[in-house]
Simulated scan of single mutants.
Amino acid sequence: MSTIRIAIDGPSGAGKSTLARSIAEKLGYLYVDTGAIYRTLGYHIYAKGLNPKDGTAVSAELPGLRVEMSHGRDGLQRMLLNGQDVTERIRLPEVSMYASAVSAHPSVRTYLLEMQRALARTHNVIMDGRDIGTVVLPDAEVKVFLTASPETRAHRRMLELEDRGTPEPYEKVLADIQKRDWDDSHRAVAPLRQAEDAVVLDTTALNFRESEEALLRIIRERTAKS
C-alpha cells in the first residue's frame, strides 16, 4: 500500500512545525520535523565549539554521530543525539544559526536525506522543512509553501521564546529571521524556494485556527485528486 506524503516548506518562523504537528495528529499521520534533525546536528557542533561554516570540520563529525527520532504515545517528536535526548536543548536561540550553517554543507544533506525518505516510505507523513517539496520528497502528493511577513514571524517567534523562558528583544528576533531567510535562500545546496507545484499559504493575516483550517482544506483537496 502506497503512503501519502505531505511536504510543507517555508521560511523560519512561519509556523510550519506547530501547524504540521497539529494536523498530523488530526489525520493520524506521522509528523516529521526535519528542522529539528538539522538543529540536532547544529547543537552538536555548537556544543563542541566548532565553526559551523567549516565544512571539513563538520563532515569529520558525521561518522561518529547517531541522530534518531522517537515518537511517544502523545505523538510528539523527540530528538536523540548518540542516545541522549536533546529535544529541549536544540531549541536554544543560538542553535538556530548553527543549524542553518551546517545545513548548507552537501555532506550533511546527504547524511540525512535517506533517513527522511525512509520515514516517508513506511508511514503517511507530514514533513516540514526548507527543501522537502523540492529535494527530499519531490513526488509528494501535497506540497505547501507556508509563509508570512518577516515582521509577523518575528512577533510569533518572540512570543514563543518568552513562553520557553528564553526571551529576546523583538528587534533582535526580526534581524535573526531576516538573516536566516537570506542564508537559507542563498545557500548553494538545496536552498529555500517554493516548488513549482506547491500551493502558497500566507498566514500573515490569519490566526492559528484559520491557518489550520486553510492548510487542512489544501491537504484534503490535493489528496482527493491523488
Rank of each mutant, 00 (worst) to 15 (best):
M1K: 11
I4D: 13
R5V: 14
I8H: 08
D9S: 10
G10V: 12
P11G: 10
P11Y: 03
G15Y: 10
K16I: 08
S17G: 15
A20D: 08
A24L: 08
E25M: 12
E25L: 13
K26G: 13
L27A: 11
L30T: 09
L30W: 08
V32I: 14
T34W: 05
T34M: 02
G35Q: 02
A36T: 02
R39W: 05
T40R: 01
G42R: 02
Y43M: 00
Y46K: 10
A47L: 10
K48C: 05
K53R: 13
D54V: 07
G55T: 00
T56N: 07
A57M: 01
V58Y: 00
V58S: 00
S59A: 15
A60K: 06
E61R: 04
L62V: 00
G64L: 03
G64D: 06
L65V: 01
L65Y: 00
L65H: 03
E68P: 02
E68N: 05
H71G: 02
G72C: 08
G72I: 07
R73Q: 13
R73I: 11
D74S: 06
D74M: 05
D74Y: 05
D74R: 05
D74A: 11
L80T: 03
L81S: 04
D85F: 03
T87E: 12
R91P: 06
E94M: 10
E94T: 06
M97H: 13
V102M: 04
T110R: 08
T110N: 09
L112M: 08
L112Y: 11
L113M: 09
E114L: 04
Q116S: 01
R117Y: 06
A118D: 15
A120H: 09
R121P: 00
T122Q: 15
H123Q: 12
N124I: 09
M127E: 06
R130D: 04
D131S: 02
L137P: 05
L137R: 03
P138I: 05
P138K: 04
A140H: 03
A140Y: 00
E141N: 09
E141D: 13
K143M: 07
F145H: 09
T147L: 10
T147I: 11
S149D: 12
P150F: 01
R156F: 08
R157I: 03
R157K: 05
R157F: 04
M158V: 11
E160A: 14
L161V: 10
L161D: 07
E162D: 14
R164L: 15
G165P: 13
Y170A: 04
E171M: 04
E171K: 02
E171A: 08
V173H: 03
A175R: 09
A175W: 01
D176W: 02
D176M: 07
Q178S: 06
K179H: 12
D181I: 07
D181N: 07
S185R: 13
H186L: 05
R187C: 01
A190D: 00
A190L: 00
R193W: 02
Q194A: 14
A195T: 10
E196T: 06
A198F: 04
V200S: 10
L201S: 04
T204S: 15
T204N: 11
A205K: 14
L206E: 10
L206M: 15
N207Y: 06
F208S: 12
A214S: 15
L215P: 09
I218C: 09
I219N: 14
I219V: 14
R220D: 15
R220P: 13
E221N: 14
T223A: 13
T223H: 08
K225A: 15
K225R: 15
